[in-house]
Amino acid sequence: MCAECGKVQPASAVQDYFAVFGLPRKLAIDTAGLERSFYKLSRKLHPDVYARASAEEQQWSLEQTSLLNDAYRTLKNPVARTEYLLKLEGKPVASEEQAAQDGKPKDSRAPVDMLEEVFELNMQLEEMRMNRKMGEDDPALRGDLEKARQQFEGQLTALDEELKTQWQQWDAAVDAGATDGAEQVKDKMFALLDRRRYIRNLVRDVNDALGA
């Protein structure tokens, strides 16, 4: 949006998703406020508003609306928002494809005790799947897996809390204009997201095996 005439501008003029909403690159976002801004901007930028405008402005309105939708979807989700910020700040969370292109997985390796935990869990999951295939049910195993699921879900909650603590550190760095020195905070968030993905996959696998 042009600040002076209030008309649509090319989407390429917008720097990032935060800028779409006129926000600084801070992570602790008031999502209710974000939603209000989203609806307000949606109404202003909507292609219907520009139905009689020039072809150029119609095109911009379309682009801006699509950008706005992407920006809102990304920023309203705490994990997507953090991933997006890390990408903006030069620390992209690599997808499987990207890791493959680099020829190796990300250098962040899961700690050994966690790998052992995951390995054991996978053994149990395999047994559970076999049982199900045979039409059998082992209540003790099922109980173990349900306990594991609860434990992992608890870990996810704890991770999200820890992520929020890092948000505050990051936001404080933004306020102080010192984001260049905030490498540690970024690394910490990166590691938290990594572990979060791992655990979320485990929860998914456990749910699958339990047939939930």
Partner: peptide, 30 residues
Amino acid sequence: LVGAPECGDVMRLQIRVNPETQVIEEAKFK
């Protein structure tokens, strides 16, 4: 024991080594 957090793979590879020759005589994985 190694793993890739991004895809959830875990791999355990074990070797049995002959102490005299240092030859790997047996290897197992899961």
